[in-house]
Amino acid sequence: MLKIENLHVRVEGKDILKGINLEINAGEVHAIMGPNGSGKSTLSYILAGREGYEITQGSISFHGKDLLEMSVEERAWAGVFLAFQYPVEVPGVSNIYMLKAALNGIRKHKGEPELDAMDFIASVKGKMKDLDMDEKFLYRAVNEGFSGGEKKRNEILQMSVLEPTLCVLDETDSGLDIDALKIVSDGINRLRDPARAFVLVTHYQRLLDYIKPDFVHVLANGKIVKSGGAELALELEDQGYSWLEDKKAS
């Protein structure tokens, strides 16, 4: 589904990613872990197409197409979803309105008719219930005045409504207490599907206790320094990242 080859990225003259290779197939869950400043968030922004990053080398293909050639919204239409580490407040625009606009944009792109408003609201409300979100959130401005946990749940709600094929979750566990983390993880697990892949970008093992990854990659200093199964995450939890840094230095 997603193939990243030899990706080099520079930001403001500084090399952040220095040759990333990663292949992700439908149905897989990949965790990307690493110390702060290793380039994890950069990788998620690159996948979503954020400006301000200079790709100096390498390629990313998504469903066989050149992802880097696509605009931000084209990627969204094609099925890329980024759950933001810091979801953005959009004052004046209600949640329901944005969800509808986003979903209809994707459906239009797929050549599907717009959803009936009543059906749409009913389906969204069902999904909100699963995430233990109050219906009143639908009519509040996007993320405005939401607590950290509410924002994260709102991201998962959007994900479940838009039904992307590639879900990139950037530090989704940060700012969540244990109860909220369970709800959010359950929400994510419900979306696991043979046709859908997940990339979990996280600093801590914590999220992986609830969402079991198929693969774990350790990103350090702009490169994937180690890949393995779910057990690698536990190893990191025990030993921290410093042993990796040491290894690299030696």
Binding site: E51, V72, V90, S94, A101, Q158
Partner: peptide, 23 residues
């Protein structure tokens, strides 16, 4: 804000128009 909306598949112009209409 623009990036966020675009990432959800809303074109830049639609995103602006949404935000402006909300305003």
């Amino acid at each position: 804000q623009l990036f966020y909306c675009m990432q959800r598949g809303i074109s830049a112009e639609d995103a602006v128009s949404m935000i402006v209409n909300g305003f």
